[in-house]
Computed example of a mutant assay.
Amino acid sequence: MPTPYRYVTPVPTEAAAGLIAQVYAQIARDFGMARMPLFLTLSPAPEVLAATWAMLRESLVAGQAPRAAKEVVATGVSLANKCPFCVDAHTVLLHATGEHELAETVARGGKPSDPEHARLFAWATGTATSGQAPPCPEGHAAEHIGTALAFHFINRMVSSLLTDDLLPAGLQRSRLVRGLGGRALAKTVRRRLPQGEALPLLHGLPSGPAPAWAAGAPAGTAFAALRAVAGEGDHLLGDSAREAVVEAVAAWDGEHPPLSGWPSGPLADVAPAQRPAAKLALLAALAPYRVADADVAAWREAGGGRSDADLVRLLAFGAITAVRRIEAALAVPA
């Protein structure tokens, strides 16, 4: 039977232990799905798995801001990043909130009829280019910024490591299927969950200072851990490769890279032996939907550490490098 997994073999839920099992259990409890492809595909690198889940939970799943509004942000970011898997998934979750017309409107990139949702959707789709603060009540800003940054990271990992199909044969593209899936998840999605319960999963992992936009909210602690954990993937790149990736992302204008001449231009001065890793990291940062079988094969053949865990960590480094660039440009609400 076809699976959505492209380049890694996930840790099955029945074989999970330790931190992986703890994360899987909390996902099943709080998200309502025991087998989420994104988190399964991150499982070879448990620290990336835990930090990604914590970031998602503490921004999107828990908190005070309406879940439907945050799902609008998640869908808008996913559309802007050309991540159909995530667009489909969060269309289903918007159905689960009871916002059926809104779900289908944003799934096709249309403008929501509700002015608040329309402003949030426009903000979300422009977060890589506009640098504006979210148009929402001050007390909800951290959750909306956290959701947007979470999905800038998640979209990049999903596009790199999963196929476009959430369900076999693309069944998720049917409005009927999406509506039924939403109804099945409605009870879980409409619960109001307390914040902070994912933070114990981060104990012992690298971290750093919480960002100013979080204003002390748990999403800031989760983001600090994700930033540190994913950043440690830089050890899989040589010095010239790391510098080339960081410089290319720093010069990025937030738009999708051209189809011709990229990324060979930014990587022209990288040593040939380091180029496969640099290409994967840069693709993950700026065009993850272009990661191809040949790119992963070239990286594996280049020698050194080439496990599934290494691949997850390398792609996570590229993804977080782009996310940090986006975060740095976002205005922090007063």
Rank of each mutant, 00 (worst) to 15 (best):
Q172V: 07
R173I: 07
R175I: 14
V177E: 10
G179H: 00
R183K: 14
L185Y: 05
L185Q: 04
A186N: 08
K187Q: 13
T188I: 10
V189Y: 04
R192I: 13
L193C: 12
E197M: 13
E197S: 12
A198D: 00
L199Y: 06
L201T: 03
H203D: 15
G204D: 15
P206E: 15
P206T: 15
A214W: 04
A214F: 04
A214E: 04
G216V: 09
G216A: 13
P218C: 13
P218D: 08
G220K: 00
A222Y: 00
A222T: 06
A222H: 03
A224K: 01
A225H: 02
A225E: 02
L226M: 15
A228Q: 05
G231L: 06
E232G: 01
E232L: 06
G233V: 05
G233A: 13
L236P: 01
L237R: 03
G238E: 11
D239M: 10
A241F: 01
A241C: 08
A241V: 04
E243D: 11
A244E: 05
A244Y: 04
V245H: 04
V246F: 12
E247Y: 12
A248S: 09
A250V: 07
A251I: 11
A251Q: 14
E255P: 04
H256K: 10
P263Y: 01
L267M: 08
L267W: 00
A271F: 09
A273N: 07
R275S: 03
A277K: 02
